[in-house]
Design a protein around this nucleic acid. Sequence first.
DNA 1: ACTTTTCCATACTCTGGCGTATGGTTTGCG
DNA 2: CGCAAACCATACGCCAGAGTATGGAAAAGT
Lengths: 208, 208
Amino acid sequence: MPTRSNDRSPCSGQAVPEASSNKRTTLSAADWELEALRVIAEQGIGAVAIEPLARRMGITKGSFYWHFTGRESLLEQALIGWEEHDARNLARSLGELDCPRDRLISFFRNVSREGLTHQVYSALTASADHPQVQPVLERVASRRMAHIAQAFEELGLATGEAEHHARLTYSVYLGFLQLQRQSQAPALSSQQFEAYLDHVIETLIPPA
Amino acid sequence: MPTRSNDRSPCSGQAVPEASSNKRTTLSAADWELEALRVIAEQGIGAVAIEPLARRMGITKGSFYWHFTGRESLLEQALIGWEEHDARNLARSLGELDCPRDRLISFFRNVSREGLTHQVYSALTASADHPQVQPVLERVASRRMAHIAQAFEELGLATGEAEHHARLTYSVYLGFLQLQRQSQAPALSSQQFEAYLDHVIETLIPPA
DNA sequence: ACTTTTCCATACTCTGGCGTATGGTTTGCG
DNA sequence: CGCAAACCATACGCCAGAGTATGGAAAAGT
């Protein structure tokens, strides 16, 4: 076991780098966490098993149990890292766009983007009842909804209305993720998707 | 093995009865299917395992492998039964309410209802990628969205608009299920829920 | 250079569910 | 009644992944 105190070896703020597989001779806990997140994105949290993960990394579980105490601790670390990264993303997008309307629109546009962080979220929604996932998802959703509510307030909605509208808006987002997940075929061409998106924006976001 | 041809022992149209555990001395395939649906509703499809299911029913797997060829066939039967039941539900609600606006509103109100069928749907959304679940979910979602689109058409929307709006509306529903699943505490009191529901209806459903 | 850490491989044990085999009990029916 | 079919229990073998133990190799300190 490592000296267990504040390990997260390479500086914990490395922004979840979609790193190339540097063939480092020795692995760190962060490498395991990243690979775990990749598996979550691809096959969901249920597929995070030590031995398959090790095989995938061309290594054996001997390594794993040196860095972690068990499967739980891996998930814990990976999820926390992911949550922090997502929170930073949110804060950044808040700083970049001044116009609240643009912020809301960019929120929906991000749905079709293919980042690891985003895919992980989509996969995690499928395990909302998992004891380690549930609190994380709840915090992330709250943060994002607060963000959206704030934008609606800036657009002139009263506080209560803004919160309801934020919940509604976020539900639309979640629902879209769900529909995306349950049809392997895109089912919607990109033109159709654009048309739909316009409809959503028109319905939910008050005009400038 | 049973005479395998068209087994579904007691008439297959028994409307997924939330039956009391009649202590029949001998079990049928339908009993296993029902219990499977109960487990799905409670713990998701991943929790449908033969031996635990048998224990739960106070029996052993010897019985199971007489009625079914394996886990897959149980799921197949159970899911198909559920889908048929859901389709009937939909058709019924279509016949009961003439006013399209009332149909839409009742659709949202059903979210808070606690029927087995509904809980199963919520649980299944968490396994949208499962090969046996995916096609079922897709068919069910399509049916329901078509139902909703039709209501919007009756309310005067053009066909294209109605489809977009139906997708949007259904997304809101799915998103709400998701939020419900990921917070153990209701997080929303029933008054708050009512207020939110009014907001949703006001936003999505054109006034009479 | 040589001893300590750090890191990983190998070889176990253990648990839980799947599926099979086979024999015992009922139940329906001739 | 008695026999065949329907139904269930028990006892297997199999497999995959969890976690442990222990020893060997690589890096780092002094």
